[in-house]
Amino acid sequence: MSTSLSTRDIVYIALFAALTAALALFPPITIPLVGVPITAQSMGPMLAGAILGAKRGALSMVLLLALVAIGLPILAGGRGGLGVFAGPTVGFLLGWIPAAWVVGLLHELGWRKLTVIGSFTHAMIGGIIVLYAIGVPVLAVHASLPLKTALFGSAAFIPGDLIKAALTGVIAMAVKRAHPIIEVRQSQPA
């Protein structure tokens, strides 16, 4: 982490890593048509980018994954430890870092005219397109699958991810109104 990060930035990074870990505790929801359980946790990178911006959002994901690596069971389903990074879906985990970065960058660029739809689109580009662009090829190589098969197998999660991107849009706008972080850094003490 670079020296240009203030104490406040470090706190945001740490709290969003912890928050994303806490999202693993929310019960998964199964969407009726697809039948794939969706966990709240993978909303973490979208939220981190949308609320903290590119740099802090991406670093919060770096920290989260570092905490996973040192053995904390903080991924959905209580997974943790270096073993998680040895599995074939590792790309969908490490992809959280660039995903949060892209979501954050798009939010920073469109910050002043941000709408729910805009935020949703940013979350979708970073949190789905970027994430799958990393996760799918890694899965294909790691599990020796053809790319198309890997993509087809992952596609079942896309509806859930779209819901998360939409939620991120609503949350990001509400947070922008109530407690913006990307623009203003300090609020009045009570």
Partner: peptide
């Protein structure tokens, strides 16, 4: 950052 995350994980 590590310490803060470890401290506030249970709190959150």
């Amino acid at each position: 950052a590590f310490s803060l995350a470890l401290r506030f994980l249970p709190v959150i």
